[in-house]
């Protein structure tokens, strides 16, 4: 019976992370950018759990708890920022919001 090497999980995690990065770089909708950030955080969680299981060490999975807590805080604050942005500018497209650019 063959088992998967650690590299399989790391490569999957890297692929998912890259999809998240491409999402942040190419989309204009702030909500989808926020979801792409969640994709990246989850990809990192996958490598942490994989390392934890393969190395036989519980600390990777504990780090996942902290990442989840930070992701929840980030989602709450990020969505509140988007709400405030929409109230002031009537848009959630990041390229139409450029008062801080110059």
């Amino acid at each position: 019976m063959s088992t998967l090497p650690l590299e399989a999980y790391l490569l999957l995690s890297a692929t998912l992370f890259t999809i998240g990065v491409v999402g942040v770089l190419t989309r204009r909708n702030a909500i989808i950018i926020l979801m792409s950030i969640e994709i990246m955080l989850n990809a990192v969680n996958l490598s942490l759990v994989a390392f934890s299981a393969y190395l036989g060490n519980a600390e990777g999975q504990l780090l996942v708890f902290f990442v989840m807590a930070v992701a929840a805080a980030e989602a709450a604050v990020g969505l509140a920022i988007i709400l405030a942005l929409f109230r002031n500018q009537q848009t959630v497209y990041v390229d139409e919001v450029n008062i801080l650019r110059w």
Binding site: L4, P5, A53, G56
Partner: peptide, 20 residues
């Protein structure tokens, strides 16, 4: 290669709610 070809035999014990 990292040299880790299979999960640790303790993996299910480590991921249990008791241990975490």
């Amino acid at each position: 290669p990292t040299g880790y070809t299979a999960p640790s035999p303790k993996a299910s014990e480590i991921g249990s709610p008791e241990n975490l």
